[in-house]
Simulated scan of single mutants.
Amino acid sequence: MHWSSLTALALVAPSSALLRFGCSQLVVQRIDPLVNPGIAPSPHLHQLIGGNALNIFMDPKEDIGEKATCTTCQFSEDFSNYWTAVMFFKAKNGSVKRVPQIPNIGFEGANGGMTVYYMQDGLANYQQTSKVTAFKQGFRMLIGEAASRTKKESQQFRQITYTCLETPGTRFPETMYFPTKPCPAGIMANVRFPTCWDGKNLDSPDHRSHMAYPESGTFESGGPCPASHPVRVPQLMYETIWDTSSFNDKALWPEDGSQPFVWSMDDTTGFGSHGDYVFGWKGDSLQRAMDSPCYVNCPTLKTQSMTAMNKCSVPKTVTEDVDSSCPTPPTPTSELTRKIDLQP
């Protein structure tokens, strides 16, 4: 469905809360304050959006919703940080070039970034009537595994997919692997997080175990949460549009005809896609939004101009050429955890 149609339906739908908003780029650099806190440079490059309280440590005891002074997101009360890996194009001659990001439909003028969703029900359900509990201060989570290279490895994470955009409005089909043909309007990387929380832990050692998927069915079908994770939270989703249009000349692609795109952790399959989230909404603003008649836009939240979104930034911690840095092989999560534990 084209977003112009979705927006039109939003004007008449008797709905509750579905937030869809754009966030401009905050910084592109080799840091990962969730998996590699305090380590700079981190094992691979990330693109990050959200509030300017971002730092390499991200102490969970700090309320970044109070600490931040600006955000790259449309809703000015959202100082959360959201990030993914970075996509590169590896040409036949071995040269590497970072693929730029472009804004989604409806957010033209934004400096790259991503589109973020918070949903009470599946995207196609215009009613959005289910009750959800907003994330709490200090909450964080990770979805996906940077080291995954096969479909079997990535199947444990539902709905981390790609859409080959024929036009900016294309939304299907979705694949779990990188598109194998040129995509005229770019590649959309979709990341959807689990929707059931244990109700106790704001994080876990692997940043995943405190979250779960419905025990049967899916979030979209209203599947129930398991007894171990009984609290239903919003469906958090990222859409990142990578502008691959300038790399679609097949003469530049590998001799064997394989697809030329690679994630910053040296993943040419696409199965290593992942997303990180650190909650930072100010006060109870997210819960108020989830309890209000919001659909795409939300009158209960404060919004800011595109100029203000694009203006917010943070200084770089790592000095590096992020446009042509060679992607790096991933470090297994277990080894990353061990390295962090050994930090003084």
Rank of each mutant, 00 (worst) to 15 (best):
H2G: 14
H2P: 11
W3K: 09
L6Q: 11
A8Q: 15
L9F: 10
A10D: 09
L11D: 14
L11F: 11
A17H: 09
L18C: 09
F21R: 01
C23G: 01
L26D: 04
V27G: 00
R30C: 08
I31A: 05
L34I: 15
H46G: 06
Q47S: 11
G50K: 03
N52Y: 06
D59I: 10
P60Y: 11
K61H: 13
K67F: 10
T69M: 09
C70I: 04
T72W: 05
T72A: 04
N81P: 01
A85D: 13
K90L: 00
N93C: 02
S95N: 08
K97P: 05
G106C: 07
A110Y: 12
N111D: 14
G112H: 01
M114N: 02
A124Q: 13
Y126P: 00
Q127C: 09
Q128A: 02
Q128I: 08
S130E: 09
A134D: 04
F139T: 08
R140N: 13
G144S: 06
G144Q: 03
E145I: 02
A147G: 07
S148M: 00
R149K: 12
K151E: 13
K152I: 14
S154C: 07
Q155I: 13
F157T: 10
R158I: 07
Q159W: 05
T161H: 09
E166M: 14
E166Q: 15
T170V: 03
F172E: 13
T175E: 01
M176D: 12
A185L: 03
A189E: 10
N190W: 11
N190K: 13
V191W: 03
P194S: 01
W197S: 07
G199H: 04
K200Y: 06
S204V: 00
P205G: 10
H207N: 13
M211H: 03
A212V: 00
G217Q: 06
G217A: 07
G222A: 04
G223I: 07
P224K: 04
S228T: 15
R232Y: 07
Q235K: 15
T240V: 14
I241A: 00
D243T: 07
D249C: 04
W253T: 01
E255H: 09
P260E: 05
F261V: 02
W263L: 15
T268P: 04
D276M: 08
Y277I: 11
V278L: 14
F279Y: 13
W281I: 08
P293E: 08
C294I: 12
T300M: 11
T300Q: 12
K302T: 13
T307K: 14
A308R: 06
M309A: 10
C312Q: 05
P315G: 05
P315S: 06
V318A: 07
V322F: 04
T328A: 15
P330H: 00
T331Y: 00
T331G: 03
P332R: 06
S334L: 10
K339E: 09
